[in-house]
Amino acid sequence: MTVKLTDRMKSWVKIGCHLNVASKSGVPFVTVARNVKSVSDDEVVFALSRDEYSVIESALSENPWVAFGVSRAGGIRACYQFKGKGTVNKEGDIYNLTVKLSELYCTKPGCYAGTRLDLKPAQECEEWEHGLWTDLPK
């Protein structure tokens, strides 16, 4: 399905994210992406430093899946999980991880936990979200 991030999602993602990748055999590796380089409707680019990238380098080289959630207060206020496949380009000392999103989930505890937001039409998704939250990161 097609992912179309809402404006609220784009705002929250920009504060940084926790990324989870896994080896082909299912061993997870978590890193923190403190710098988000760009966000489009279905793509997020993380600018990773060498140490941030080193944690996920091996797993990512054999398995492109990336799952991420928003760091800091986003863990409470931005109840989303984003999934897609990632590719890496090195630019100087920075590793640009581009994640092309293909799945989007609500993680609010309760009846909406696990809801596939990417399966809703974009307008419906936005209205649904607006009915729950409108706050943006400070």
Binding site: H18, L19, N20, V21, A22, S23, K24, S25, G26, V27, P28, V30, N63, W65, V66, A67, F68, G69, G75, I76, C79, Q81, K83, T107
Partner: peptide
Amino acid sequence: YLATSSADGKPNIAA
């Protein structure tokens, strides 16, 4: 954050 993976390597993460 609690991070897991399916046996075939699809990651998952939730607060």
